[in-house]
């Protein structure tokens, strides 16, 4: 049995200077203590348990949360105003080449400063947001093909998960042309995640990452016929092929060429399901050549090679095909 304690602390600051309103200064102090216990019960079975406590304190008006005094906004005056416990237990059966995983836990997510107070003119905040709390469970398999098998070079991670959350932080488009987070009374998310890779030869590797999602508002008081949560595509798939070779030419240490395709299914922009943001897809190609014993790298990328129409969160069109070139020197 092993015990692995850990601790982390961070300070987050947000400054917003709108042109037609008072500036906003917010700070968040975050501290987390956790302990992971791992027990190899048998040669095949490993059990894990993780417990953690998170402490969040937020202040406004530029003052640090630990500055005691007259409150002026947020949670001023207290060092730990929100304590969120979380825990997770899991089991792993087997190891390479095939391992099965089962996990379950309780989680909490405090809204970020950007979710509370905004990020930009297009992504506004909602100071009334409350924390998201829920339980989750997942089951998965990780498999690697044996070296001498027909599928040698292949591996796969496949996980199914379910999450039930109260106060899930979701986004919705406002009629005024920006998106804003809100708490979904009760949400249920089912999903499937896949990461597969296959190295057909030493110089070629193919990958596929995909997420299937079924995110639904299951609040008892939901009145809309639509239950799908806005801004959550039900499918994201990213296939990628990479070709690489070492020393293909004199003076060239390594050359790589990769093509990836991004596909995100269409999604709703509103809770009622009346406004649809179309599917987003683009083909990106990138290449890299390392020269002078890898002291110099030339990288090029062409984004959205097919010049496919894409839109931002609001629905405004994004730039089309674009090319980038970078030069990096290393001593």
């Amino acid at each position: 049995m092993t015990l692995a304690p850990s601790a982390r602390a961070s300070l987050e600051r947000l400054a917003i200077d709108p042109s037609a309103a008072d500036p906003l200064r917010a700070r968040r102090v975050f501290a987390r203590a956790a302990a992971l216990v791992e027990w190899e019960a048998t040669d095949l079975l490993t059990l894990r348990a993780l417990g953690s406590g998170e402490c969040h304190s937020t202040s406004l008006d530029g003052r640090a949360p630990w500055d005691l005094g007259q409150p002026a906004g947020g949670d001023d005056g207290a060092l730990c105003t929100q304590l969120e416990p979380a825990g997770r237990v899991g089991a792993q059966l087997g190891d390479a080449p095939v391992a099965l995983f089962v996990n379950a836990g309780r989680y909490a997510r405090v809204p970020t400063l950007a979710e509370l107070y905004g990020l930009s003119g297009a992504v506004r905040g909602n100071a009334a947001l409350s924390s998201e709390r829920g339980v989750s469970a997942d089951v998965g398999v990780r498999a690697t093909a044996p070296a001498r098998s027909a599928l040698a070079g292949g591996s796969i991670d496949l996980f199914a998960f379910a999450r039930r959350a109260d106060g899930l932080v979701a986004y919705e488009r406002s009629g005024l042309g920006y998106v804003r987070p809100y708490n979904v009374g009760a949400a249920r998310v089912l999903g499937l995640e896949l990461l597969a890779s296959y190295r057909a030869a030493r110089w070629v590797r193919a990958e596929l990452a995909a997420t299937l999602l079924d995110p639904r508002d299951v609040s008892p008081d939901r009145a809309t016929a639509n239950a799908l949560l806005p801004y959550q595509p039900r499918l994201i798939a990213v296939p990628r092929v990479e070709l690489s070779t070492r020393a293909p030419l004199p003076g060239v240490a390594e050359a790589k060429l990769a093509a990836s395709y991004f596909y995100s299914a269409s999604r709703y922009a509103d809770a009622a399901g009346l406004v649809v943001l179309p599917a987003q897809q683009s083909l990106d190609v990138e290449g890299e050549v390392s020269l002078l014993g890898e002291h110099l790298a030339v990288r090029g990328r062409v984004a959205n090679v097919l010049d496919q129409a894409r839109t931002d969160l609001i629905g405004y069109p994004l730039p089309g095909r674009a090319a980038y070139l970078a030069l990096e020197g290393r001593l």
């Binding site: 809309t224 016929a225 039900r234 499918l235 299914a265 269409s266 709703y268 009622a272 009346l274």
Partner: peptide, 13 residues
């Protein structure tokens, strides 16, 4: 079919 099924269309009504 998976791609098509994962897209959404406006709640007509």
């Amino acid at each position: 079919a998976t791609l098509a099924a994962c897209g959404v269309s406006p709640v007509s009504g």
